[in-house]
Design a protein around this nucleic acid. Structure first.
Lengths: 231, 231
DNA sequence: CGTATTCTTGACTTATATCAATGTCGGTGG
DNA sequence: CCACCGACATTGATATAAGTCAAGAATACG
């Protein structure tokens, strides 16, 4: 595998790791390019590997028994994903699909406990990562319990702009293709409602929409919507 | 501290630990009795300790900036709780309140990393614990996104009966005082709606209510409500 | 007992889903 | 290069689940 170790070194997850350990890890890694719409792994499949996203953007989805889909989270460059073994289960709880062309690094599941036991520091860092994810999940539960749809969408869009925002001339552009349906699945609503909300915002000059595109023109107004109730 | 090590030994979290390590941990532990309504720690307070619940029942709550409360999770005997340090934060993200008289064991936060580094096995187990919690959170998000209130309440009640159910003559009784308001805060709805739902179920012989009481008489019917949509 | 929670129930309102068209974009192939 | 197709988006009309408002009743507790 020809992966530049300095790329990994820049990630908080690995920055405390020695060069020797890092190279040992890379020895076992397999990289793979994933095209938009392709799955890295599927819900329910045996968890043969765990992954690191080097470049691109993934969405992790789950489908309910009756066929409804939700987006569990977005995976951004530098994120570990698909470590089902940490959850003590043999299969992946969700499906990881590329939203944009992506580059992943994969390790065999068996290596996880070896790496962790050899390198307790990695264990601590990994735990903090899951902890953060748990906190994000609680935030989402809190929002879904207490906020009406418009505020939830405002929060979701603001998060996206922080995690995947790219400065362009008219504002901050979400840097990967995202549909109304996607936003609906992230906030627990329908694409119709999202469409109406974004249309209203566009009329007020807060955002600029488009087919699988979204640009935030006035982050301040969006923050107001998200924080104070009923504007 | 006079705590019987065999009690801890029976918990999955500690069963692989040597007697020596276990005793070393207990050396630093402080036990405390908590009366119903009392808080073990408060949201936003500095995370001085992490805890283990030996006996009783706690609810972990969060309040939103505008004063609405939600129940993040219930803590059952044997559960670790309040380990904010794993989330890499210095304060508690929620408040832990005793629902019934409880007995907790507390360690100073600083000890966590020491224990973990001395005992990698503990790290792995702890990570699995957080992982399970993450999965529970995702389940809740999925339910809140796709299910109507009655099914969510059904799922919540079934979970309670699994985690805190006690066989009594008329069915399975939730073994701690729980109000309609509590169930509402666990499912993202209002106490009115919960009350109506429980009344309807009582009329159908599925449950038996009461002030801060709840008994499941017909788990099968409840499962039907939870699984199949619109009965 | 009386006082304070907790619970129930009815009437009304509203946010949001659902149903149903129609419009628009962007890529593919003729 | 244009035309067409499929995916995505918009928007109106209507339905409805669940929230809000408002009393009252039941239960526990001091």
């Amino acid at each position: 595998m020809k992966i530049d170790p300095t790329v990994l070194k820049s990630l908080p997850l690995f920055d405390r790791m020695s060069d020797r350990d890092l190279n040992a890890m890379l020895e076992h890694a397999v990289s793979r390019r994933v095209m938009p719409g392709d799955a890295v792994f599927e819900q329910g499949a045996p968890a043969k590997s765990f992954f690191l996203l080097l470049h691109g953007r993934l969405k992790v989805t789950q489908v309910t028994p009756d066929g409804q889909q939700i987006i569990v989270r977005m995976v951004h460059p530098g994120d570990l994903f698909g470590f089902a073994m940490a959850l003590q289960r043999a299969d992946y709880p969700g499906t990881a699909i590329a939203a944009a062309e992506s580059l992943t690094l994969a390790w065999p599941t068996e290596m996880w406990s070896r790496f962790v036991e050899q390198n307790p520091r990695l264990a601590v860092t990994a735990m903090q990562t899951i902890g953060q994810r748990l906190e994000e999940a609680h935030t989402r539960i809190r929002e879904m319990s207490t906020e009406e749809v418009e505020r939830r969408v405002a929060h979701a869009v603001l998060r996206l702009s922080r995690q995947a925002g790219k400065q362009v001339d008219t504002g901050i552009r979400i840097d990967f293709p995202i549909s109304r349906q996607d936003i609906a699945e992230m906030t627990g609503t329908t694409l119709h409602t999202v469409s109406r909300i974004l249309s209203a915002w566009e009329a007020r000059g807060i955002v600029e929409g488009g087919r699988q595109k979204l640009t935030i023109c006035d982050p301040q107004k969006l923050l107001n919507l998200a924080d104070r109730a009923r504007s």
